[in-house]
């Protein structure tokens, strides 16, 4: 039994020896000469280049993903909806604020200095003053005027009517008598507001001798504030309080 096992072992050694010999012969058969080593080196280098190229490609893919991520989509409809909504609000506010041309029924008034020959009236009282026009505007507003213009100057809440020597200053421009006031609103109510006894205009005409003439109109045109005013007017001090 021991003999058999010993024999098997010898056979194993023999086979292994054959394998080793074959491997050595195979090794010598590959003919690794200088040229082969040179080629192998070149292949190795080439492999490195290819490997780098793979990395470059991966980097580019990554860069594209990053770029795609950064890309903010431009939502056309949302943008235009916003613009349309804001412009609609602006347009409504402009109408409210006197920045649009308007048309409608109302009255036209002509007010000029007194021609009264009554010497008891002081000369200064014969002149149409800034406060007279201010009160007339207020009376027209009280009667529901929706738009007022004086000698082409649209009256809004920031309009001043102040004395500028022999002239008046309205919206930064000088205005001289006679003062032509147009107001859009209920013609009857507006007419009464400057003609009924006891009104300021009535007093101007009948007490101080000023020339006050009024007529109703059923299709008045009142222009907006001039474009340069609208474009150049800037809010500098006030801001909306949240």
């Amino acid at each position: 039994m021991v003999f058999i096992r010993f024999k098997s072992f010898n056979i194993l050694i023999f086979i292994l020896t054959i394998f080793v010999s074959a491997a050595v012969v195979h090794g010598t058969n590959v003919k690794i000469d200088e040229n082969t080593i040179y080629l192998l080196e070149k292949i190795n280098n080439f492999e490195i280049v290819v490997k780098n190229e793979r990395v470059n490609v991966e980097n580019l893919k990554h860069e594209i993903e990053v770029e795609k991520g950064k890309m903010v989509s431009v939502n056309e409809s949302e943008y235009f909806d916003t613009i349309i909504e804001m412009n609609k609000n602006i347009q409504e506010l402009k109408h409210y604020n006197g920045f649009t041309d308007v048309r409608g029924p109302g009255i036209i008034m002509r007010v000029s200095d007194s021609v009264s020959e009554d010497e008891t009236i002081d000369i200064m009282d014969k002149i149409v003053h800034d406060v007279d026009i201010t009160v007339l505007i207020n009376d027209l507003k009280s009667a529901g005027a929706e738009a007022i213009i004086i000698n082409g100057k649209r009256i809004i809440n920031i309009s001043e009517v102040v004395c500028a020597g022999p002239l008046l200053k309205i919206n930064g421009d000088s205005v001289s008598a006679p003062f032509l006031i147009s107001a859009i609103g209920d013609p009857e109510a507006l007419y009464n507001a400057v003609n009924e006894e006891g009104t300021y205009a009535y007093e101007l005409k009948n007490v101080w001798g000023m020339e006050v003439a009024t007529m109703k109109s059923y299709n008045l045109f009142i222009s907006k504030l001039p474009k340069f005013f609208e474009e150049n007017y800037e809010i500098q001090y006030a801001e909306i309080a949240e």
Partner: peptide, 12 residues
């Protein structure tokens, strides 16, 4: 447009 809207809002 917002500036214009703000201006009109303040004036109103």
């Amino acid at each position: 447009i917002e500036e214009e809207l703000n201006k009109q809002k303040i004036l109103s």
